Amino acid sequence: MTAKITFDSDRCKGCELCTAVCPKHIVAIDQDAINHKGYHPAHVTDITQCVACASCAKICPDSVITVERF
């Protein structure tokens, strides 16, 4: 299964909940980026390892993550 994960980086608060629930440990906080609110947003480090479980999207309190399965 192929997945596409989209983060609304401008709305991400970097709470790290998505990083904690990812079974493949491929969601991380991007220490090199800062959004307009001053937070380091989350991102996927290796999309090829994603199983499209959508755990990250389900736990996100601000609904900034979209998971699409192909």
Rank of each mutant, 00 (worst) to 15 (best):
Met1Thr: 11
Ala3Leu: 04
Ala3Tyr: 14
Lys4Ala: 05
Lys4Ser: 11
Lys4Trp: 04
Lys4Gln: 12
Lys4Val: 04
Lys4Met: 06
Phe7Ala: 01
Asp8Ile: 02
Asp8Cys: 04
Arg11Ser: 10
Arg11Cys: 01
Arg11Gln: 13
Cys12Leu: 06
Lys13His: 09
Gly14Glu: 09
Gly14Met: 11
Glu16Trp: 08
Glu16Asn: 10
Cys18Asn: 02
Thr19Ala: 13
Thr19Asp: 00
Ala20His: 15
Val21Gly: 03
Val21Asn: 07
Val21Ser: 03
Pro23Phe: 08
Lys24Ser: 14
Ala28Gln: 12
Ile29Gly: 14
Asp30Pro: 13
Asp30Glu: 08
Asp32Tyr: 12
Asp32Cys: 06
Ala33Ile: 09
Ile34Asp: 03
Asn35His: 06
Asn35Glu: 04
His36Thr: 01
His36Trp: 03
Lys37Ala: 07
Tyr39Arg: 02
Pro41Cys: 06
Pro41Leu: 09
Ala42Arg: 06
Val44Phe: 00
Thr45Asn: 00
Thr45Ala: 00
Asp46Tyr: 06
Asp46His: 07
Asp46Gly: 08
Asp46Lys: 04
Asp46Ala: 11
Ile47Thr: 02
Ile47Ala: 14
Ile47Arg: 14
Thr48Glu: 04
Thr48Gly: 12
Gln49Asn: 12
Cys50Trp: 02
Cys50Asn: 08
Cys50Lys: 06
Cys50Phe: 03
Val51Gly: 04
Ala52Trp: 07
Cys53Thr: 14
Ala54Gly: 07
Ala57Arg: 01
Ala57Asp: 00
Ile59Pro: 00
Cys60Leu: 08
Asp62Thr: 03
Ser63Glu: 08
Val64His: 14
Val64Trp: 06
Val64Tyr: 04
Thr66Leu: 09
Val67Gly: 01
Glu68Arg: 06
Glu68Gly: 11
Arg69Gly: 12
Arg69Ile: 13
Arg69Lys: 14
Phe70Ala: 13
Phe70Lys: 13
